[in-house]
Design a binder for these strands. Sequence first.
DNA 1: GCCAACGTTGGC
DNA 2: GCCAACGTTGGC
Length: 154
Amino acid sequence: MGYWLMKSEPDVFGIDHLAARPDRTEPWDGVRNYQARNMMRDAMRPGDQVFFYHSNCTVPGVVGIAEIVGEARPDPTAFDPRAKYFDPKSDPDNPRWYLVDVRYVRHLKRTIALAELKEHAIGGLRDMPLVRKGNRLSVMPVTPEQWALILGLE
DNA sequence: GCCAACGTTGGC
DNA sequence: GCCAACGTTGGC
């Protein structure tokens, strides 16, 4: 089973939004970054566990756990001219952008703030893009060791 | 293929 | 709101 971290802005779509969805599941659309797309399309598997991360907010950090449901599929918002993330270069016959469906699992008992994660930036989280300066990846892999370390902080 | 310009991300 | 870091675009 794989582990991931996915960022979202709580004002736009936070973990409470996810928990309130029908089936507690939401298509993770709008990703327009090739690295992130490749991970979703090529590496994520149903059942993989996800740290839900709140970005661009007062206390950025990991706030909960979600899981991947089903295989990646083309992102329909790329084909919709009225959609915010419309991409005229994405051809339905050869889709450029993919999404995965993400299902709520639980909130963490408390937010594990980025500031706290950074305390491990020269330790167990050394190789995690999240704690490295300037990293903007919205989807990133988490090793089993990193997963256990972060959960252990809860 | 280079690289300057531009737009976006996201912490602070 | 600022701005550093980064990815993408497009002229050449």
